[in-house]
Amino acid sequence: MQIARDILLSSYRSMRTIREFEERLHVEFATGEIPGFVHLYCGEEASGVGVCSHLTEKDTIASTHRGHGHCIAKGVGVDGMMAEIYGRQTGVCRGKGGSMHIADLSLGMLGANGIVGGGPPLICGAALSHKILKDGAVAIAFYGDGASNEGSTLESLNLATVWNIPAVFVVEDNGYGEATGSSYACAGNQKDRAAGFGMPYFECDGNDFFAVYQAAGEAISHARNGNGPAMLHVHLARWYGHFEGDAMTYRADNEVAKLRAEHDCLVNFRKRVTEAGLLDASALNDLDTAVKSEIDAAVAAAKAAPLPDEADLLKDVYVSY
């Protein structure tokens, strides 16, 4: 499969931005300056970026509690995100949503979601909007293996097929729902679930951007062409705990170290594009440097940004009341 150079560059940049953003949060969170809790997407970058590389601002995505990666992949700015996570007035949600509710509807980002299984029903609605408004767009629900067991998700798979809407259900299967393994919590398998609801099933290695890009392309085309919903099952792994501060006593000692060493999607990507002569290492290094300073600046700006004031407490509950 040929992927245009600009897509390769922007995809790499997105993945690197996510990695840098999350690694930095891991460090900053430990200082105690970040309120609440954060769920990091490190290790899963190729999934969000591989899918969103097929989308435009007209397309809609719904994310999860582990949403930073999807937000960045869909184009939400890191300054607004960082400020939001620091609970600042300049945050993308004015400091009223936090890590789990970053959204930007103008970019088709229907929100990270603090409720497991919250996104799939919403995406049925977004897909219905695209169908009725005939704008040619698709709607993508990202959800985890944990959410794949929620009734709301299973109902959504059914509804999407019944309504024949342009929805794609992306199961990001990182092997754990919080601290419980999917081998314990998920009965049967995702493929049979897709078949059970009469939709095509695509599967890929989430550490390989190219595999994700290929499979997502097929699933999205299926939906975009009016053939109804599809399921994309992405196998991947999270490098950090369910949330920051999770000691991960449920994981074997060497599990994460092995993942980092052998299954880093960024390393895989660099290797592939440089070996194939698609991109220069120097171009990628330049991007790495640029991203690093972008994240440095975002953190500095967030720390310096004003806190919400008392008036913000009462604002924006309703459009009018």
């Binding site: 509807l105 029903p121 919403l122 995406i123 049925c124 609605g125 709301s152 109902e155 019944v162």
Partner: peptide, 20 residues
């Protein structure tokens, strides 16, 4: 809709947030 309140009430919310 199917008898499936979680999906279609959620869908109604999602559709409302995206232009319907």
């Amino acid at each position: 809709t199917p008898i499936s309140e979680a999906s279609y009430i959620g869908a109604a919310a999602g559709a409302a947030a995206t232009g319907l």
